[in-house]
Design a protein around this nucleic acid. Structure first.
Lengths: 211, 211
DNA sequence: GTCTATATATAGATAGAC
DNA sequence: GTCTATCTATATATAGAC
């Protein structure tokens, strides 16, 4: 029986998405032409549009949370990291998970491109909004648990703090995208330091600077 | 004598730039057409290109540091804020200066758009690079002085810390651009808190969480 | 599934009258 | 300085053969 081979089809899609992602990262969405994608992926225009209905769909596919052949999806890994017994340790694991992608040189420009496109593309907005909500919920839960366990400043609003943890992680991407000298891997320890000092309960102190 | 009126010419340019900025913020650079800018600015295509050689030049003009009719340029205000006697106070003033623009709803999307365009536009890269270097130098100087005055953690590398202060400020823009629920004005106190805790010398503590 | 060829649209920029 | 009219290029997407 030789119907269509869905595995082959998926692999071909992946190849297109991967090729296009490099181009989108380097040149942006609108300045990357479908002709360039075709050439880089080694196929014709007619064939490319056999796999995707339009250019935008290729961009969306970059951000879809597919599990890959071997590993878990990001949502699954997030759930697992969140499940740890020690809330502070679990928080650090989640942070590591969310910062890992920043080491891929293509990721920061792609994320910036997505932020810019999100206003003009409700479908992408929904897609990334779901991701974002998932992360925010995980962080809020962990921060609440960490506060209850006396590991962080109980005066912090967990919801606001989670938003800022996300913002700090996003800094890794935006700084890398804006400045080639900024290397996420090198800056990770500083990010950890900032998170620790921000979230930690401040002990009593005498000579604090006045804000 | 009725030569050309340079003041009128500048005002007309400003009008175009301001109009275009709103459109670029809402729809991005490439998806905003010169025809739309013409219509919104109330002029013809022929006339628009009498003021600017091309569309990109309009975008550049948004980020040029012109003093406005009345006030100082941003570089001047930065120099003044930097000159204060108390380094910590001066640092806060510089931070306030650099966060002020984030309250304008058009600014965050414009900044994101600029980050994305900077890779494809060496001229814009140079323009924003100068700005960035100016701010970084100011912050590094102040952080060095503050460390010498015992106001912040002397173990921090002033150069790295300055980079992160900039990253934290940039968070205000990128978070606002990515999430409509994020209001920079409301989040400013949290930013100050993070800066204070990050930069402050940490006193000795017993029950710190382990990183 | 893959190709070649092309329809269709729309953009940025210019020419030249007033 | 401002306009109308238009040139030229290029992009996305489709049609239809193999």
């Amino acid at each position: 029986m030789r119907k269509i081979d869905p595995a082959k089809h998926r692999a071909r899609r992946r190849h297109i998405v991967h090729t296009a992602a490099q181009l989108f990262a380097a040149k942006g969405f609108e300045r990357t032409t479908t002709a360039e994608i075709c050439k880089a992926a080694g196929m014709s225009s007619g064939n490319l549009f056999h796999y995707f209905p339009n250019k935008r769909a290729i961009f969306h596919a970059i951000f879809e949370d597919d599990a890959g052949e071997t590993g878990e999806s990001k949502a699954e890994r997030l759930a697992r990291a969140q499940a740890g017994d020690d809330p502070w340790e679990a928080l650090l694991e989640v942070v590591d998970l969310l910062t890992a992608d920043a080491m891929d040189p293509a990721a920061p420009p792609l994320v910036m491109e997505a932020v810019v496109q999100v206003h003009r593309d409700p479908e992408l907005d929904a897609l990334l909004g779901r991701d974002n909500a998932l992360e925010h919920t995980a962080l809020t839960t962990l921060l609440t648990r960490a506060a209850a366990a006396g590991q962080i400043d109980p005066a912090l609003d967990p919801h606001d703090a989670a938003t800022w943890v996300q913002a700090l992680i996003a800094s890794l991407y935006s700084s890398a995208a804006a400045d080639p000298a900024f290397k996420p891997a090198e800056q990770l320890p500083v990010l950890h330091l900032i998170l620790q000092r921000f979230l930690q309960a401040p002990p009593h102190r005498e000579n604090a600077p006045q804000a």
